[in-house]
């Protein structure tokens, strides 16, 4: 059972890093972007590019990666944020200016998602890639077997969520984001530049997705559909958590991660994505506002 919890937390770490950005984008831009999964894959491939340029993923402290990949992680976060900003300026901002319906925004994001995914295929093909082939021995923590890379993923995720929490509650920009997510008009009246908040939302959302992609690439593998496959679990976590704040999303991600680990262990691994969808369904029927969501 402890093993399942550990596996679930590892799965939850990738979902968390993706869904936190999805939740912020949803609350500030007012639509669920189907491209968030592919931001994850784009990030993983940017880091792969840096590692390829360096010629090695390096190695520090007995891990399967080192400074080249750590540098790649930063580059991936920055470049993915730049991609998201460029897409916003070229497409989503134009649609907002034209007062396009939410359906148009969802549809455009679905198109952007496919374009990103297949641009990766164009550049790197369908075959999976790895940052490094080194195999690190699993640690044994009181009977629970866990890879050092997996521990790092959980640690990075916890650090980033805590950092984001401090950012949202302690900084002016973070508070502005919370204000815009609740009431954009009132935020503007308060002197908040909504355009600036939107830009930072994409930067943080896509940047964290890129980190998720690199970690997922380190722990599992890199392939063009790696992010797309996380999209449904992320949406499930968003709905389970109530859609309105990142804390619900994080809790949702942990629940979905555990549900996936239980499915892999006791049911059928191939239906892992379906489990999160059924979770969504049950939540919608019993509690449409999610677990931490407010009553509509």
């Amino acid at each position: 059972m402890m093993q399942v919890i550990a596996d679930g937390l590892v799965a939850a770490s990738f979902i968390t890093l993706g869904v936190v950005g999805l939740s912020m984008i949803y609350n500030i831009l007012n639509f669920p972007t189907f491209a968030q999964g592919d931001h994850i894959a784009v990030g993983a491939y940017f880091a792969l590019g840096v590692v390829a340029l360096a010629g090695t993923a390096g190695s520090v402290a007995g891990l399967s990666f080192g400074w080249p990949l750590i540098l790649g992680l930063f580059c991936a976060a920055v470049l993915t944020a730049v991609v998201a900003l460029a897409l916003d300026r070229a497409i989503f901002a134009q649609l907002r200016r034209r007062d396009a319906s939410r359906i148009s925004l969802i549809m455009a994001s679905f198109g952007v998602a496919l374009m990103l995914r297949y641009m990766i295929v164009m550049a790197a093909g369908h075959d999976p890639h790895y940052y490094a082939f080194a195999i690190t021995p699993a640690l044994n923590l009181g009977g629970v077997r866990i890879q050092p890379n997996e521990l790092i993923s959980i640690a990075v995720t916890v650090a980033m969520v805590v950092g984001l929490h401090l950012f949202l509650t302690r900084t002016w920009l973070g508070r502005s984001m919370r204000a815009v997510s609740e009431n954009p008009t009132l935020a503007r009246v308060n002197g908040i530049d909504v355009g600036r908040v939107v830009r930072w939302t994409w930067i943080i959302g896509a940047g964290m997705a890129a980190v998720a992609g690199v970690l997922l690439g380190v722990v599992v593998q890199i392939h063009p559909f790696m992010g797309f496959e996380l999209l449904l679990p992320m949406f499930a976590a968003l709905i389970v958590g109530g859609m309105t704040n990142i804390y619900g999303a994080v809790l949702g991600a942990v629940l979905i991660g555990l549900a996936e680990a239980l499915t892999i262990r006791y049911l059928a691994p191939e239906y892992r994505q379906a489990v999160s969808f059924i979770a969504v369904f049950v939540v919608l029927m019993v509690r449409p506002q999610g677990i931490l969501g407010e009553k509509p």
Partner: peptide, 13 residues
């Protein structure tokens, strides 16, 4: 949004 996500999910299932 819920229908968008729900239909997306059913297609994958």
């Amino acid at each position: 949004d819920f229908l968008a996500i729900g239909t997306f999910g059913i297609a994958i299932c």
